[in-house]
Design a protein around this nucleic acid. Structure first.
Lengths: 98, 98
DNA sequence: AATATAGTTCGTATTTTTGCGAACAACGAA
DNA sequence: TTCGTTGTTCGCAAAAATACGAACTATATT
């Protein structure tokens, strides 16, 4: 059963993407990856003033939101934008700020 | 004293706006106000499945983020977009999703 | 002055987020 | 196989977000 609401699924999805972007560290990572195709967690860890475990959590959140994806390149992990979802997020947010 | 970080003030500001947009209720209100110039809290309260006090909190957050403003029109309060900041938010977010 | 309306603030509870260090897992190199 | 590198997961703590109902404030109406 669904509680009645005027809020659409599209708006919920948009809000989820916006929420994922709503932290400086995550926004930094997203912006970097939208510009330079890929990076390693270690690269980020060197420049960001947070613990590795904290960074890992933020990366996980971006992954859970669907905005990035990781590919094993042992012993590192290469992170890139999830193009499909990133494009969706851009469209959805673009519709809000149009 | 400022801890060193590669994260810019611009990114922090963008993240703050994104965070304010990161909830379905707040996104709904923003989208409504970006389309129809103004509304009253009561209008929102009628259609949104949340308590009035909860709505009031969300409106306060949007106000604190600078995205909307309220004008007393007793006994109601007329809410509108804060055009200056909304435009700033659009520019900042537009820069991310460009 | 009493009442009705509109909305905020207060008090509280629950959940989620943010963050850290220690421990762990996976893999390549020596 | 032992060691180093890379990054995640675990356990914990503190802070912030979300939500509600009750109480309150302010104003207009009767």
């Amino acid at each position: 059963m669904e509680v009645y609401t005027v809020i659409t699924e599209k708006q919920k999805k948009t809000a989820r993407y916006a929420k994922a972007m709503g932290h400086p560290v995550r926004l930094y990572v997203l912006q970097l990856l939208s510009e330079q195709s890929c990076c390693y967690s270690g690269d980020l860890s060197e420049v960001l003033p947070i613990a590795k475990s904290t960074l890992s959590q933020h990366l996980k959140e971006l992954k859970d939101a669907g905005l990035i994806q990781g590919e094993i390149e042992a012993p590192k992990i290469k992170y890139c934008i999830n193009k499909e979802n990133w494009n969706e997020a851009r469209l959805l947010l673009g519709d809000i700020i149009k």
